[in-house]
Amino acid sequence: MTRVLQAEAHDTGTVDTAPNRADEGYDTIFSYRELARLDEALTMASRETGLRFTLWIGDLGPKTRIRAEELHARGGDPANSVLLAVSPGQRVIEVVTGPASARRLPDRACALAVLSMTNSFASGDLVGGIVNGLRQLSDQAGHPRSARTH
């Protein structure tokens, strides 16, 4: 009679075959298509303007502005970066610009982009609002002189 092999489960992964980050579960807030849209919007906005656009989606605590500015300062190259901090649970979006990026993106332009984003958010379209807001911000910031090739 054949017996079923009583094999214990071992983690037999080596350095090369161990589970990597792509295998682990992650919080699927967005579908892959939405992630691709966000990816492209962030990357293209950053490349066109030379500024560094980052996007935070999560809770911002009771003092949303202070928390957003903390995050902005922590995100690497704060002077040239623009942080979009969206807290869907609190229904708040904060846009933080650094000293250098604020010269290209005045507060009035940010407020206009925020207005269009909140419009989309209120109708439940998080990704669409973010993508359009990023487009608006990058249009406003324009190309840096150093990156202008034509």
Partner: peptide, 20 residues
């Protein structure tokens, strides 16, 4: 895939930080 966001519903997901 993903969640369907409706305004006013709680957001109990891990914070995410996307960068270019």
């Amino acid at each position: 895939q993903g969640v369907r966001y409706k305004p006013g519903q709680p957001w109990d997901h891990e914070p995410v930080w996307y960068e270019p």
